[in-house]
């Protein structure tokens, strides 16, 4: 889980002018996120986003993704995979374990990512110049905007126990914005807890073929996608 990792990051930068803002994309609401947050007991901001508003605002499509924002409120790294890698795709489906080399590589990538965040906070390293940051922004389309409108409606209908109507709008959201794992997995979770990581999820991951589930960030320690 990411929350304790981010706590370590935050603790190691306690003397810096820095904040972690962790946003839980949880349409089931506070109670879905509560056990994880209470276990991690974060001292940084830990917020709940049932409507996935932040994903809509920033064009996030997966978790964990992160955006780096400087002291002036400028985006210096648009949304990117926040230290997670595709090694999980090689997981043994029976034992749910990774080969030792993959486990090691996964840990090394996560460490490299957190080191990069630390270097940025301390020295400004890895902050993208304006043009490069703009070039790295997600390419937002009309279909994605429409998908977010359906998703917002679907979540509201679900919260008001109009489950069949909700399912239609949530499915339409995923159809319009197939790159959004957040929408697909949240929808699966609303249908049934556990489904977001079930056989249909693995089939979708397999269907990616050579494409990444977690596109590697352009940072030291990560191979180009």
């Amino acid at each position: 889980m990411d929350l304790p990792v981010w706590q370590s990051l935050f603790d190691s930068l306690a003397d810096a002018n820095f904040m972690v803002v962790a946003v839980a994309m949880d349409s089931r609401g506070v109670e879905a996120a509560r056990p994880w947050i209470e276990a991690a007991a974060p001292t940084y901001w830990s917020l709940i986003d049932p409507e996935h508003r932040v994903a809509s605002l920033y064009g996030m499509v997966n978790v964990p993704q992160a955006v780096w924002i400087d002291e002036g409120g400028k985006i210096v790294r648009p949304p990117e995979s926040a230290g997670s890698t595709d090694h999980f795709r090689g997981m043994d489906q029976v034992t749910k374990t990774l080969a030792p080399d993959d486990a090691k590589a996964r840990l090394a990538a996560r460490t490299a990512y957190m080191d990069a965040v630390r270097a940025w906070v301390r020295t400004g390293a890895h902050a993208l110049p304006g043009d490069a940051a703009r070039a790295a922004l997600p390419a937002l389309t009309a279909d994605m905007s429409l998908a977010h409108a359906h998703f917002r409606l679907g979540v509201w209908l679900q919260q008001h126990d109009r489950v069949a109507d909700a399912a239609r709008h949530l499915a339409e959201a995923s159809r319009l914005h197939p790159e959004s794992w957040n929408m697909w997995r949240q929808t699966a979770d609303l249908e049934q807890v556990g489904k977001s990581g079930g056989p249909e999820f693995w089939a979708r991951v397999k269907a990616l073929g050579d494409k990444s589930y977690y596109p590697p960030p352009n940072l030291p320690g990560f191979a180009a996608d």
């Binding site: 990411d2 820095f18 803002v21 946003v23 879905a32 002291e71 965040v117 997995r185």
Partner: peptide, 20 residues
């Protein structure tokens, strides 16, 4: 309630996660 812009003056690592 927390508002992102109230952190102006600090570097912010804005990250997403989920229980699912």
């Amino acid at each position: 309630t927390h508002r992102l812009s109230s952190l102006r003056g600090k570097k912010v690592f804005l990250s997403s996660w989920a229980s699912w």
